[in-house]
Simulated scan of single mutants.
Amino acid sequence: MSKSRFIELMAKSMGECASAEELAELDIFLEQFPNYKKTYEVTNALKGNGAQPAEAKPEEINGKLEEIWNRIKSSNENVEVDTKVRPMFRWQWVAAAILVFAAVGALFYKRMEQQDSLTAENVLYEIHVPYGKTQKLKLPDGTQVTLNAGSTFSYPEAFEKNTRDVSLTGEGFFEVTKNAKKPFLVHTARLVVKVLGTVFNVKAYNNDKTVETTLLKGKVQVELKNNPEKKIILLPNEKLIVVNNREPQSVKPKESKIEYQVTALPDVKPDEVKETAWVDNRILFTNELFEDVAAQIERKYNVQVVFEDQKLRTEQISGLLDKESLQEALGIIEMTTPFKFRVDGQTVYLSKKEK
């Protein structure tokens, strides 16, 4: 094997594009020529496959490259070379040498680039809020977020990209710091909310019937995940309600329809907006299904509600739960709705009241 053939195989091996036959040929050659094997091990260490630490300093890398160059330049070995094709082999040797340096340089640059990319943007924080609790936090850009019970929220240590991306499963109230050059994006399983600076609420629990975005100040654009070309613009005091497809669709894709609607919020005081009452640890409901209110009770009081009488699920109830205990809250609802309850540990059983 000639020097050029060795360099060619070495370059292919480093670039992970060598065939099984070429790798076998290289292994046999290295066993016969220990000096070549040492050179190969040096270059392989640069790639990070050898025993040498991958975090070599730049001056160490340059020294090894210089060593490889000197070895190649000073070597006169040319095993099994036909004199008739020696000039051709000389050009092949030069080309292969360039290939090796290109491969080593690319690998070194890629390694350094990967290290540089491990910035704060790639350090993600994930917050899990248990039932019975809410949590407030301040993001790196100054944005204030309040998370409802049963929510999971993730965000980077720093917003280094052209957008400020966060992810939410559950419910969050956002007061976004304005930055026209970096839109703020809230990603949920069903939709993406894009804002520049505004105050809004996103409710996106996986088990809820709907996903809701409620805008209080500013302006937001909502993009539906299964129809990204559809952009929905919300103005202050508007709410977007999107059907949450929790079950696989039985219809064909061409027959499926996106179900959503935009509604105006009632003209009430800010502290009477039911969509954001949870921020103050309250539950405000007006003519809502009992089963929907029960889901809010589960989150607020960290309990599981079991309907022993399924007809109770569709009862429409109204009321306000503030600082009441669980027993007191159920008692308030019981005053206007014919049902009875019992509490066993963390489980609440609801049944129809006998006349």
Rank of each mutant, 00 (worst) to 15 (best):
A294V: 02
A294S: 13
E272A: 10
R313A: 14
L326S: 10
R282C: 01
T276R: 12
D280C: 02
T314H: 15
E298Y: 07
Y301G: 02
E298A: 04
K300S: 03
E275Q: 15
V273S: 03
L321M: 13
V279H: 06
A277H: 09
Q296C: 00
D322S: 15
N302W: 02
T314L: 14
E308F: 06
A277P: 10
V273H: 13
L321S: 02
V303T: 11
K300D: 05
L326D: 11
L320N: 11
I317L: 05
S318Y: 10
V293Q: 12
I283R: 05
K274W: 08
N287F: 02
R299H: 13
S325V: 06
A277Q: 09
V303C: 08
N287M: 05
S325M: 07
L326V: 10
E275T: 12
L326T: 10
Q327P: 00
I283P: 07
A277S: 15
E298I: 04
E308Y: 05
E324H: 07
D309T: 09
V279N: 06
E315V: 11
F285Q: 05
Q296G: 00
N287R: 13
D271E: 15
L326M: 11
L284M: 13
L321W: 06
V273P: 02
D280E: 15
E324I: 05
K311I: 01
T276C: 08
D309P: 00
E275G: 09
E315N: 12
Q327A: 13
S325K: 09
Q296M: 07
K323C: 00
L284S: 05
Q304Y: 01
V305S: 02
R299S: 11
V305W: 03
D309F: 00
V293D: 13
F285R: 04
E298K: 01
V305E: 04
F285I: 04
N281L: 11
R313G: 01
V305N: 04
F307L: 07
T286F: 12
D292E: 15
E291R: 13
E288F: 07
Q296I: 01
E291Y: 14
E288H: 10
A294L: 04
A294Y: 04
L321K: 03
V293M: 13
F290P: 03
E291I: 04
T286I: 13
S318I: 09
E272V: 03
I297W: 08
E315D: 11
E324N: 11
I317N: 01
Q310M: 07
L320A: 09
Q296W: 00
L326R: 09
L320F: 08
L326I: 11
E275A: 12
A277E: 11
W278E: 09
D322F: 12
V305P: 03
T286S: 12
E308A: 10
L289P: 01
Q310C: 00
K274S: 15
L320P: 03
